Amino acid sequence: LSIEDFTQAFGMTPAAFSALPRWKQQNLKKEKGLF
């Protein structure tokens, strides 16, 4: 994903996403259907 696509999909920047705990990242991916 481009940074723009990522931000649009997750509502945050890739840097903010990577700062989240691993379990939170997994849950967000599942919610968006990317996992």
Rank of each mutant, 00 (worst) to 15 (best):
G11C: 02
A16W: 02
K24G: 03
A19Q: 14
T13E: 05
I3R: 09
L28C: 04
G11K: 02
L28M: 05
F17G: 07
A16P: 01
T7Y: 14
A9T: 11
T13W: 00
S18M: 13
T13Y: 00
S2V: 00
E4R: 02
N27R: 13
A9P: 02
F10M: 10
T7V: 11
K32P: 09
A15K: 11
A16K: 12
L1T: 07
F17W: 10
L28G: 03
K24P: 02
E31R: 05
K32E: 13
D5S: 04
R22W: 14
D5A: 04
Q8S: 07
P14A: 10
L20T: 10
P21A: 04
S18H: 12
P21M: 01
K32F: 06
G11R: 02
F35S: 07
Q8T: 13
A19R: 11
T13D: 13
F35H: 12
Q8E: 12
L20C: 01
T13F: 00
L20D: 10
F10I: 13
T13G: 05
E31S: 09
M12K: 01
K32S: 11
S2I: 01
S2T: 12
G11L: 00
D5C: 00
S2H: 03
K24C: 08
F6Y: 15
R22S: 15
I3D: 09
I3Q: 12
L20G: 05
P14V: 09
A15M: 08
K24D: 11
E31K: 04
K29I: 12
A19K: 13
L20Q: 06
K29W: 07
Q26M: 08
T7C: 08
R22Q: 15
A15R: 08
Q8A: 10
F10G: 09
A15F: 01
M12A: 03
S18Q: 07
Q26L: 08
A16S: 09
A16V: 05
L1Y: 11
L28Q: 05
G11N: 06
Q26H: 15
F6W: 03
T7K: 11
K32I: 15
L34M: 14
L34S: 14
W23Y: 14
E4K: 12
N27L: 14
P21I: 00
K29Q: 12
K24V: 08
Q26R: 08
E4L: 02
F10C: 03
Q8L: 07
W23L: 06
L34Q: 13
K29H: 05
A15T: 12
L1W: 09
F10T: 07
R22A: 15
P14W: 05
K30F: 08
D5M: 00
R22D: 15
P14L: 07
S18P: 02
T13V: 01
E4M: 01
A19C: 08
G33W: 03
S2N: 15
S18I: 03
L20Y: 01
L34G: 13
A9C: 07
F17I: 04
K24F: 01
T7R: 07
P14E: 14
E31G: 07
G11A: 01
D5T: 05
M12G: 01
F10A: 07
N27C: 09
F17L: 04
A15S: 12
A19I: 04
S18F: 12
A16Q: 14
E4Q: 05
L34F: 06
F17M: 03
T13M: 00
F10D: 11
A19E: 15
S18W: 10
R22M: 14
W23H: 15
Q8W: 02
P14T: 03
N27E: 15
S2P: 08
K24S: 09
I3G: 06
L28R: 03
A9V: 12
L20V: 01
K30Q: 12
Q26D: 15
F35W: 09
K32N: 10
Q8V: 11
T7A: 09
Q26C: 09
K32M: 10
A16F: 06
S18E: 15
S18L: 07
P21K: 00
F35G: 15
F10Y: 14
A9M: 09
F10W: 05
N27V: 13
F35R: 11
M12V: 04
Q8R: 13
L28T: 02
F6L: 06
Q26G: 05
N27S: 14
G11M: 00
S2L: 01
F10K: 07
E31M: 06
A15L: 09
N27Y: 12
K24N: 08
Q8G: 03
P14Q: 09
Q25S: 01
I3E: 14
L20W: 02
K32L: 10
W23K: 06
N27G: 07
L1F: 15
L1A: 06
Q25N: 02
T13Q: 04
D5P: 00
W23T: 10
F17D: 15
M12D: 05
P14R: 08
E4C: 05
